[in-house]
Simulated assay, not measured.
Amino acid sequence: MKPTHKLIFILCMVLVLASIIYSCKKLHFHIWVQKTQHDAEETAVVLTQPKGAEVNRITVYDEQGFLLELDTKLPPELAYKYGNLSDEVCKPGYAAAKMASIYHKFRKVMPMFLDQNFKRLEKVNNYLPPFGFKTQEKVIEYILSATKHYRLRQELESLSCKRCIIVGNGGILFNKSLGSRIDGYDVVVRLNEAPVSGYSKDVGTKTTMRITYPEGAIQNTENYEKDSLFVFSAFKPLDFKWLRQMVFKEKVKGTEGFWKSVARRVPRDASEIRILNPYFIQEAAFQFIGLPFNNGLMGKGNIPTLGTVAITMALHNCDEVAVAGFGYNLNMPNAPLHYYEGVKMSAIKESWTHNIPKEKEFLRKLVKAKVITDLTNGI
Rank of each mutant, 00 (worst) to 15 (best):
E193G: 09
K176W: 05
G168E: 12
L173H: 00
T147N: 06
E141V: 06
V203W: 03
E155N: 08
E157I: 05
D186V: 05
F174P: 00
Y142L: 15
A194Q: 09
L152K: 00
Y199R: 07
V196A: 11
L152R: 02
I143V: 15
G171R: 05
K201P: 00
K148L: 11
A146W: 03
V139C: 05
A146L: 10
E155D: 14
E193W: 13
V139G: 04
E193R: 15
L159D: 02
P195F: 01
K138L: 00
S177A: 15
V188A: 03
G198E: 09
G171W: 06
V203E: 06
F174S: 12
R181L: 14
P195R: 05
G170V: 13
G170P: 13
V139A: 02
R151K: 11
D202S: 09
L159A: 05
S177K: 15
E193A: 14
I165G: 09
S197K: 15
R151V: 06
K148M: 09
L152A: 03
G184H: 13
P195C: 01
G184L: 06
I140G: 07
K201G: 10
N175L: 11
G179A: 12
L191N: 00
R190W: 03
V188D: 03
L156V: 04
L178W: 07
I165M: 10
N169W: 02
R181W: 06
S197P: 02
C164K: 01
L144E: 07
R163Q: 08
N192F: 04
N175R: 14
G198D: 02
G168Q: 10
G179P: 09
I172R: 12
T147G: 09
L156S: 01
A194Y: 10
K176L: 15
H149Y: 13
L156G: 07
R190E: 01
I182T: 07
V188R: 05
R163H: 02
V167M: 04
L191A: 01
R153V: 10
R190T: 11
C164A: 15
Y199V: 10
E141Y: 06
G168A: 08
L191M: 05
L178R: 07
I140S: 09
Y142R: 15
I172V: 15
E141R: 13
T147D: 07
K138G: 01
L152W: 11
V203G: 03
E155Q: 12
Q154I: 09
